[in-house]
Design a binder for these strands. Structure first.
Lengths: 365, 365
DNA sequence: GGGGGGTGCTCAATCGATGAAGCGTTGTTA
DNA sequence: TAACAACGCTTCATCGATTGAGCACCCCCC
C-alpha cells in the first residue's frame, strides 16, 4: 500500500508525461489541479487556503495550475463540508403582486445584491406561492441549507410560515415593521413619521382644511402606520381639519374607486392623501375624468416614490421610501446574524423623506 | 463486524427506547429519519424515492417519520452526489442600469420564476459588475456548479465572458438577439418588425412626412434592430419622408438632450420615435418645456411598454415587448438544454405588438 | 430436502472539499 | 552521536444523499 517512491515517480510521469488530467465533462476539480502539480488534493486545498505548513513553491505552483485550468471550487462539495452554503435567499410574495408594485422589489434587490456582492455571496430568489401549501418554498430553501439565511419581503402579517421560522430561530431578516414579532430582526421605515410629515405639509403649508385618506388594507402594518401618521398629524394641527377615510388595496384601480367615493360624498374635499403612489395615480385619473384639475382644484399626495409619482403630470408629491437602502441594510443585518456578531434581534427603522412635486400646489419659497 | 442480530436488537431499542435521535443544530438528515424508523439510511433514501424493492410498510413508515421530523434533503449533499444542482441562475447587468429600466428585469424575473417554480427549481440572481474583472461572478456561479445553467439578460454584445461561456458549451440562454453568436441559444423579440410597425403607423396612419429617430447606442443589437426597422419602414412608404437620427444611450436624460438637438436643427419635424420609453419621456419633457404640445404640435412614440409610457400624460404610443413571456420562454429553453432534449441552439423570436396611446394623435377609427 | 428465485433490506463506495493526524526527511542541539 | 524539533507533505475521515452489489431469509417446486 505504501510505496512512496513508486507513487512519486508516477506523479513525475504525470507531471511531465503525455497523459493530461483531462477534466471530465468540463468541470475542473481540486484533484485535477493537484494532479497537474503533482501533490495530493489536500495539499492543493491547503495551498489555496494559504496554509502556513505548505511551502511557498508549492503554493505558487498550485495557484498557477488552478488559474491555468480555470479551477472553481465546487459549491456543493464546499457547502457539504462546511455545513452551510454561501448563499442567502430573498423571498418575495408572488400571489400578492398587487400589494406592492414591482419597482419596490427591484430597488430592494439592487440593495441586497450590492451588499451580497461585496461579500461574494450568491443570491437565491424565492417566491411564496400560496400560504396554505404546507411547507412554503422558502422554508424548504432554508431547511435544505441551499441558503444559509433569508430576507423576507413578504408584506403579509399573517403568514404562518414566517412566524414558524422566527420561532425556530432561523436566520431571517424581515422587511417592514413587525411589532407582533419582537424576536425577529427586521428592517423597516418610519411610516408613521412619513405619513405625518406629508399630511402636515398639506395642512400647514397649503392650508388644507378638508382632507381624505385612501389607505391600504388595514391588516397590513404599512397601511396601519400610514393611517396612524395621517391621524397624528391632524390631531396636532393648529387649525381644525375635517377628514375622511376610504380603504383601498394599494392597487391603481382601487385608488380610482376610492377617489370616486370621496368626490361623491365629500363635496368640500381639498386634498387626497393616498397610502401609495399607485392609488394616488388611480385617484388622479378619476379626478381628471371629472374635469377637475390637480393641484388647482384638489391637492394630491402619494407614498413610496418608486417611479410612478415622478412620471405623472403633474408629478405627485410623495414620501420617499429608501428601498435600496433597506435592501442593503437587511443584507448587512442578515450577515451579522449569520456571523453571530449580533445575536439579539434588532429592529432597524430607516427615515423617509418628503418629496414635494407639483400635485399639492404652488411653493413660493 | 457482522452480527445482524445484535444490530437489529439495537435498532429495536432505538425505536422504542428513551434516546431520541435529537437532530443536531436544527438540521434533520436522512440518518435521523432512518434511525427513527429503524432502517439504514439507504433504505430510507430508496423509500422516499419509491423504489420497488422497498416494502410498502417501510415506505409508509419512512414517509411518516420524514414528515414528523420535518426532513428536507440537504441540497449540497444531493447536488454533490448528482453532480448537478437544482438551481438556475439569472444574470442581469449591474453597471449598465441605465441601459434598460428596472421594470424590464422585474417582468423577466416574473416569467422565469413562474417556469422555475413549475419545475421546483431554485433561482439564483447574479450581476455582472464589471467586465474586466477576470472571471465574472456569473461564470463562477456556473463553474462552481451552484447553478446548472444560466439565463443571461445582459444587453452588452461585447461581454467576453458571454462569448467564452458559449464557446465552452455551458448551458446558457441569452435574452435578446445575438446574430454573431449562432451557437448560443437565445430568446429575443423581432425589434426590426416592431420598429417598422410603429414607424409605419406614424407615417401612413398619421401622415407624418418629417420624422426623427432617437436610437440607443449602436453597439447594442436592440438599438441596431430598432433603427433598421425605422429605416425599412421609411424605405417602403408610399410618400417620401425626410428623416434624421440622433443617438442616445437609452436613458431619460439622453432622450431629452436628443430632443433638444432635433428641435434645434429640424424645424419641420412632425414626429419623434425614440428607441425606448425612457428616452421618449425625456423627449416629452423637453418638448413640453418649449411650450409645444404632444400630439398637437409633434407626435411622439417610444418602445418597450414596461410601465413608463402608460403613466405619462399623454400616454406614449409604444411597442410592447413581452418581457414576461421572454422570461418564461428562456427558462423553458434552458430546461430543454439541461435535459438534453434540445441539443441544437435555437433562436426564439417573439412577436411584439403596437400599443397606440395618445402621443401620436387622434384615431378616428 | 435441496436448489432456484424473489423479496427486502444492508454495505460500501461515490461525489468534492477540507483539515486533523500521521509520517518521512532534514536540520539542530546537548 | 543520539534525541528531538521543524518542515512539508500524505492519509484518512468527514459532511449527506444516492445507488450498485451483496446477502440473509422465505416460499415454491421438483
Amino acid at each position: 500500500m505504501s510505496q512512496p517512491n513508486e507513487e512519486r515517480s508516477k506523479v513525475v510521469a504525470l507531471r511531465a508525461g503525455s497523459s493530461p488530467p483531462r477534466p471530465r465533462r468540463g468541470s475542473v476539480t481540486l484533484k485535477h489541479v493537484a494532479a497537474q502539480v503533482g501533490v495530493s488534493s489536500s495539499a492543493a486545498s491547503m495551498a489555496l487556503a494559504d496554509h502556513p505548513r505548505i511551502s511557498e513553491a508549492t503554493k505558487d505552483a498550485v495557484r498557477a495550475a488552478a488559474a491555468d485550468l480555470g479551477y472553481v471550487p465546487n459549491s456543493a462539495g464546499r457547502a457539504l463540508r462546511a455545513g452551510r452554503s454561501t448563499s442567502i435567499a430573498v423571498v418575495v410574495p408572488n400571489t400578492s403582486q398587487h400589494v406592492f408594485g414591482h419597482p419596490y422589489f427591484m430597488h430592494l434587490l439592487v440593495g441586497v445584491t450590492a451588499e451580497a456582492n461585496d461579500r461574494d455571496v450568491a443570491l437565491m430568489m424565492s417566491t411564496n406561492p400560496d400560504e396554505t401549501h404546507g411547507v412554503a418554498a422558502y422554508e424548504r430553501v432554508l431547511r435544505s441549507r441551499a441558503a444559509s439565511g433569508a430576507i423576507i419581503a413578504s408584506a403579509s402579517i399573517n403568514d404562518p410560515n414566517v412566524n414558524r421560522m422566527v420561532d425556530a430561530a432561523m436566520p431571517v431578516v424581515l422587511i417592514g415593521r413587525f411589532p407582533h414579532l419582537p424576536r425577529a430582526t427586521s428592517v423597516g421605515v418610519d411610516d408613521v413619521a412619513g405619513a405625518k410629515a406629508i399630511t402636515r405639509h398639506l395642512v400647514e403649508d397649503h392650508g388644507v382644511r378638508h382632507i381624505a385618506h385612501i389607505s391600504g388594507p388595514l391588516d397590513h402594518q404599512t397601511a396601519i402606520d400610514r393611517y396612524e401618521g395621517f391621524r397624528n398629524a391632524l390631531a396636532e394641527t393648529s387649525q381644525p381639519c375635517t377628514h375622511a377615510l376610504v380603504v383601498g388595496d394599494f392597487g391603481e384601480e382601487s385608488g380610482r374607486a376610492a377617489a370616486r367615493q370621496i368626490l361623491d360624498s365629500m363635496a368640500d374635499v381639498q386634498a387626497i392623501f393616498a397610502a401609495n403612489d399607485e392609488m394616488a395615480y388611480g385617484a388622479l385619473l378619476e379626478i381628471r375624468d371629472r374635469g377637475l384639475r390637480v393641484p388647482e382644484d384638489l391637492a394630491l399626495a402619494g407614498y413610496d416614490d418608486f417611479g410612478v409619482s415622478r412620471l405623472t403630470t403633474p408629478g405627485i408629491t410623495t414620501v420617499h421610501v429608501p428601498a435600496e437602502d433597506m435592501g442593503r441594510r437587511a443584507a448587512a443585518q442578515l450577515f451579522a446574524l449569520l456571523d453571530g456578531t449580533d445575536p439579539d434581534p434588532t429592529h432597524a427603522v430607516l427615515p423617509t423623506s418628503l418629496v414635494v412635486r407639483d400635485s399639492c400646489g404652488n411653493h413660493p419659497a
